[in-house]
Amino acid sequence: MDVSDILASQISKHKSILVEKDVPLDTDVGFLTVTDPSVVDKESYDHDREAYLQSTARDGIQHLLAALFSLPTLPSPEGPLAQLPPPTTQLPRAKPLPKPKPPTKWQRFARAKGISSQRRDKKIWDDERQAWVPRWGWRGKNRDEETQWLHEVPANADADHDPSKEARVARKERTAKNERQRLQNVARAQQGRTTATATGTQVDRKRDINRTLATTRMSTASMGKFDRVLDGEKKLRGVKRKFDPIEKSVDAEKSANLALIKQIGNGAPGGSSLKKVKRDGLDSESGGNGGAGGVVNVRKAVRFASGGQGAAALARKSVVGSGSDGRQKRRGKR
């Protein structure tokens, strides 16, 4: 019996699932996306646009479905689920990557010591109740000691000894300690996050505190000499003077001397403002008196000459009097 006819008729019933393209299609199964990089056929596009768009889409989707249906599947209550590979197209994220949490003090210690901590379960087995109960919180196991109906009382206990209350206080203390440690960890993490700026301010703060402390210690009647010394308090030390080495290289000596000469020429840049004002005053006086060298006090001389009226009045007078004294006139203009 020849079955080839039957087979052929069976095959002809089904349309082909093969897609033939000149340029291979680019599928991204993870994003259920297929890209057809071939150039658009202008003739068929112009002839019947909608039919052309639909046929290209069909070919592409057939290709994508072939890839999807050949994926490994896992059974589920709804039906088989195809396991998708991770997508190949890179799309931008909506939010930046999560930052790793800074380790707590205990975690750091454990890592340094090589302690591998296992997570404690939230639930704990209660033999009396024959059930898993929470370790802490509502109906927590850590309250058993307070709520038990019978307490052991030590022989030397006070008359008002309340074991239940004591257990409660101890538990509250543990909770408070944990909270305190948590806050410290948070603060440490916060500090670590801004390390670059924090170190600068921290150093400044330390220096300020030291300076304030030194000032207060010196600010007593005996300038700190007869004050009561606290335990572990160190002797206050001033700034130690430092001297340059006597022998220097020729270059270093030369440059240092040149810098000194330059300072003399310009007026010391590091000098106090008072000195600067004084020097400025001297300069202007010597300029005004034509090199008299500050022997005459200009301000007093003006006051004397104008009879207490001031430089402006003197100038007016000298203009009216057609310049009786050249020297006074010049001064008046200033």
């Binding site: 259920l32 996306t33 890209t35 990089p37 592409g60 994508l64």
Partner: peptide, 13 residues
């Protein structure tokens, strides 16, 4: 329901 996407043109690359 998620759609399948199909892009057709050389310009997309």
């Amino acid at each position: 329901h998620k759609p399948m996407l199909h892009f057709a043109s050389e310009l997309f690359d």
